[in-house]
Each structure stands twice: as structure tokens, then as C-alpha cells.
Amino acid sequence: MLDELVQELKSKFPNAQVQLHNPPEGVGSSSIEITPQSLREVCFYLRDQSPLKFQVLQVISGIDYVDYLEVCYMLANFDLNRSYEMILKVKLSDRVNPSLDSVSDIWPAANWQERECYDMLGVVFKNHPDFRRILCPDDWEGFPLRKDYVAAKFYNGMQVYPDHKMNLEERSYIIHSKSQAEELQKKSLAKGL
């Protein structure tokens, strides 16, 4: 079923560079990858005109592979006779300022899911109706689920990792001061990540 869908998308959207990824070792789910620029038109098609109408967006999950960021959209079809779900993927190669079009007017469920993706990974969604952090406080620095995230020791005067409660020598993911955080960020920017 996924093959037919891929053929349809390839014929309708030749610019989207539609690719089918099968699981490399045989177990797991397959996924369809498209380019970030063609996201909105493919989503409109999948919701309205495709024979498997994907009425529901279940979750948007962001993953940090160190060379690129990946945003996965889980779409589901809620027909009572046949239920189907698929994974739609988009790769973002720019790690410093990743940005993507928002699909919150296509599926209003995407509103909060995109806010969480921004909060955890830093992906900026354009034309989002209410763009701000959702889980972490508004003045939080950094994006926690990135692989190079280093937690801060102090937040607003409170000690997040007190010395007498932790074994700090082994904790490489905790920094001791704000200046050290800025140094680390400069280093990762310089590497072009």
C-alpha cells in the first residue's frame, strides 16, 4: 500500500523527491521522505485528495542525527473499515537555524506538536499562530533534546545540580557557568553543525 502511495506522490509532485525508506534490517516501520519545500502541498494532497484520506495528524517527532535534523509526521486514517498510519519525514540539514513551514492550518493538532518540536529541538516553524515554548519555561536557554545539549547549573537563582547531591566529576553534561555554555556554543557553531 505504501508503494502505491509513493508512486502517486512521485507522479503528482515531481519536485518533492519522494523516497521510500524501508527498515534496514527488516523489522520496523517504513517511511516516506520528501523535501522541506514541498511539505505543504503534499500535506494538502494527503488530507484531501488521496484515496487514503489522512484526516488525523497524530504526533510530530523531531530527531537529532548529528549531521542533520529530522522531523517525522505520523499521519493516520480513521476510517472504520480500514485504518492506516504512515510516517512522513523531512530532513533539515541546517542545524543552526532550522526552519520549516507550519501545517497548523491543515491539521489544527499540529499547533501544540510544533511548539513542542521547537522547544525540544529548536526547529522554527514559519507562520505559526502562537509560537513560543510549551514545556520548558519561556526564558529557557538551549534545546534539551539535541545531542550536544549541556544543562545549566543555575536557573533564576536556584541550583539545579547542587554539588553535595551529585557526583560532578563524572557529569560531563553539566556546566558550571554561563560563560562556559557560550564557549561550547561557539565551538559547535564553528564546526558548522
Binding site: P23, E25, Q58, M74
Partner: peptide, 9 residues
């Protein structure tokens, strides 16, 4: 686990 991904509900 083998390499890959899975979504299950």
C-alpha cells in the same frame, strides 16, 4: 534492537 524505527499505538 536492530537498526530502524517503529511507531505503534
Amino acid at each position: 534492537l536492530p537498526k530502524g524505527e517503529i511507531y505503534m499505538r
